[in-house]
Write a protein that binds this DNA or RNA. Structure first.
Lengths: 104, 104
DNA sequence: TCTACATTTCGAAACATGTCGAATTATCGA
DNA sequence: TCGATAATTCGACATGTTTCGAAATGTAGA
């Protein structure tokens, strides 16, 4: 996942899709913000084939969902993915503290 | 930062260093867990020069701190960095929710 | 000062990634 | 069925990354 987010174009795509339905909110999967592939590429000076390649990488990394809706393909983020990433850096969720430090 | 975390060796190093003093705890910078370069490489089948290269990448990305202590060089994570990463995926900290979703 | 240890720098090789354009596939509407 | 639109696949190329070993640097102790 971090590898996929490590490219500036892919990070931008991910950020565009994550501006709604973040962990801690009450957004459900159905509420998740969606963009078509073309919309996601707007403002990025990138060939359509390159955009497609990046979307595929994000999808393979498990970061985004994709589904055809007519002529377009819609992309969104499953809120559970954001929870997971959030939890990775959150002590309560995933890590045990070890060593001599004072956890309260 | 995500690019730096996107390599398996570097992610492992980062995880070893982040097992203490996570955001939400009361660990101070002085309490941060520290390992020498050699200790960080233990168990990884990797040449010393490669390890050094990865550490440099993590340092350049702003993910780890390094300081010479005698013959060895100690590495640790500034808790502020963990807060920052944590905040990136946390709705309260950094993002505004937009669109038609119902935030409570 | 000499030696051992810890780490970094350098250069080179193998491999992976980002990018494009052209060709292809899928869907909708006339 | 045909054409237009949206997106993907493919092949190619330039650029970056990972890795190593050898040589260099920095530090402590005999």
């Amino acid at each position: 996942m971090f590898k996929a987010l490590g490219n500036p174009h892919r990070l931008l795509i991910f950020q565009r899709l994550s501006r709604c339905c973040l962990p801690g909110t009450r957004c459900d999967l159905e509420d998740a913000i969606r963009f078509s592939v073309g919309e996601l590429g707007e403002g990025m000076e990138i060939a359509a084939s390159t955009l497609s390649h990046h979307l595929k990488a994000l999808h393979h990394a498990g970061l985004i969902e994709m589904e055809r809706q007519g002529k377009q393909i819609n992309c969104w983020i499953d809120p559970a993915v954001l929870e997971k990433l959030y939890g990775f850096f959150n002590p309560q969720a995933e890590f045990e503290n070890i060593g001599g430090c004072d956890v309260r």
